Simulated assay, not measured.
Amino acid sequence: MFGYVAGLPAFLAYFVLGLVFYGVFALVYSALTPQKEMTLIRAGNMAAVTAYLGSILGFGIVLASAAANSVSVVDFIIWSIIGVLAQILAFFIASLTMTKLHERITNGEISAGVWNAGISLAVGLLNAACMTY
Results as ranks from 00 to 15, higher is better:
residue 102 H to Y: 10
residue 46 M to F: 10
residue 17 L to M: 12
residue 28 V to E: 06
residue 15 F to Q: 07
residue 62 V to L: 04
residue 125 L to A: 13
residue 108 G to K: 05
residue 123 V to R: 00
residue 74 V to R: 09
residue 93 I to Q: 14
residue 46 M to W: 04
residue 3 G to M: 14
residue 44 G to E: 05
residue 46 M to E: 08
residue 81 I to V: 15
residue 15 F to M: 07
residue 65 S to N: 00
residue 103 E to V: 09
residue 34 P to G: 08
residue 129 A to M: 12
residue 58 G to A: 07
residue 60 G to W: 06
residue 62 V to E: 02
residue 82 I to M: 13
residue 49 V to E: 02
residue 126 L to S: 09
residue 116 N to L: 01
residue 91 F to R: 08
residue 76 F to N: 04
residue 128 A to I: 05
residue 120 S to G: 12
residue 22 Y to P: 00
residue 125 L to H: 03
residue 28 V to A: 08
residue 88 I to G: 01
residue 47 A to R: 03
residue 40 L to G: 11
residue 19 L to P: 02
residue 89 L to A: 10
residue 119 I to T: 02
residue 76 F to Y: 15
residue 79 W to S: 11
residue 117 A to P: 04
residue 44 G to Q: 09
residue 66 A to Y: 01
residue 62 V to D: 11
residue 27 L to K: 06
residue 34 P to K: 13
residue 104 R to E: 04
residue 51 A to N: 15
residue 128 A to Q: 01
residue 25 F to A: 03
residue 93 I to F: 03
residue 46 M to L: 15
residue 56 I to N: 04
residue 53 L to M: 14
residue 131 M to Y: 10
residue 58 G to Y: 10
residue 93 I to N: 11
residue 44 G to K: 03
residue 77 I to M: 10
residue 81 I to G: 11
residue 73 V to A: 10
residue 24 V to E: 05
residue 75 D to S: 01
residue 51 A to D: 09
residue 12 L to G: 06
